[in-house]
């Protein structure tokens, strides 16, 4: 029976899709059968981030509407045979996501996978609601910045009230915060919110802190999840987050400014 995890944020552009791809690939690399579903109907992007955009034939909405079988729409990753992607439609809108349709697809996937990751669209409307509704756990992605933290709080409120788990079992689903684009140097200068302050404000457990890193853009340029880049600090931080999702206790890394050598300073490089 698969565990369903929603990756959500409220605010756009904070790194939901990057995070979903990174966590999905990380879980798959650890041998867990993982499927990632793109809920951002009309703005398909997960396929780009995972580098399978040229292999999309059928999509999530086709399956919901009975126009294709689930196995026809699922794309198997070329690097990790435990990773599958269910892309969304680029042409329809989010009204195509019916509660019954989403439930039926998730029920079909549950038996064949260990993890189902739902990549939520930004906002708090239908797509975001459907992405979180059937979840067992939630990863809320935020940047250390006021509007992102505020939206995150709003999403946490919805996760506490608008999910099937809460409605049926009156049980709060497990929620984690994943901070992205963290810059310890700016925190030290008093220019960026501190992790402890964000955690206190939101009253939530921390899944991971991803340092601001050039490797994230490079990975998306290449269509490769950043967790497959074993030299990058962002990739390592995501892999730590994967371990924590699996219940392991790990210390958080990359929370202090990196020491740069004189040569790197001269060249203005930022690893």
């Amino acid at each position: 029976m698969a565990k369903i995890i929603v990756i959500t944020s409220g605010k756009g552009g904070v790194g939901k899709t990057t995070t979903t791809a990174a966590l999905g690939a990380g879980l798959a690399a650890r041998g867990h059968r993982t499927v990632i579903i793109d809920f951002d109907v009309g703005l398909r992007n997960l396929d780009m981030i995972l580098g399978c955009e040229r292999r999309v034939v059928f999509d999530f909405i086709n399956v919901i509407n009975g126009e294709a079988k689930l196995h026809q729409a699922l794309i198997k990753d070329k690097r990790l045979d435990t990773l599958h992607i269910l892309p969304t439609s680029q042409t329809r809108d989010k009204d195509a996501l019916t509660t019954e349709g989403v439930e039926s697809v998730l029920d079909q996937l549950r038996g064949d996978f260990d993890f189902i990751l739902c990549d939520s669209p930004a906002g708090i409307e239908r797509g975001a609601h459907m992405a979180m509704y059937f979840a067992d756990e939630a990863v809320v992605v935020a940047n250390p910045e006021v509007s992102s933290v505020r939206d995150c709080d709003r999403i946490l409120g919805l996760l506490d009230s608008k999910t099937r788990k809460v409605e049926r079992e009156q049980e709060r689903l497990k929620q984690y915060l994943l901070l992205t684009r963290f810059d310890p140097g700016r925190v030290n200068k008093g220019e960026m919110l501190r992790i402890e302050d964000i955690l206190e404000i939101l009253a939530i457990d921390l899944l991971g802190v991803i340092p601001e890193s050039e490797s994230v853009l490079k990975a998306s340029n290449l269509g490769m999840p950043v967790t497959l880049d074993n030299k990058s600090n962002a990739g390592k931080a995501y892999l730590d987050a994967v371990s924590r999702l699996l219940g392991e206790q790990l210390e958080h890394r990359f929370l202090a400014p990196e020491r740069r050598g004189l040569l790197q300073r001269l060249m203005g490089r930022t690893a």
């Binding site: 910045e145 006021v146 933290v149 505020r150 709080d153 709003r154 409120g157 925190v187 200068k189 008093g190 220019e191 960026m192 919110l193 501190r194 302050d197 404000i201």
Partner: peptide
């Protein structure tokens, strides 16, 4: 940064206040 300094503290205070009301 317009004086730079401890703008993060200001951010924290503003967030605490607005979220207390929104909740």
């Amino acid at each position: 940064g317009g004086g730079g300094g401890q703008s993060a503290d200001k951010a924290r205070e503003r967030l605490q206040l607005v979220l207390a009301h929104e909740r």
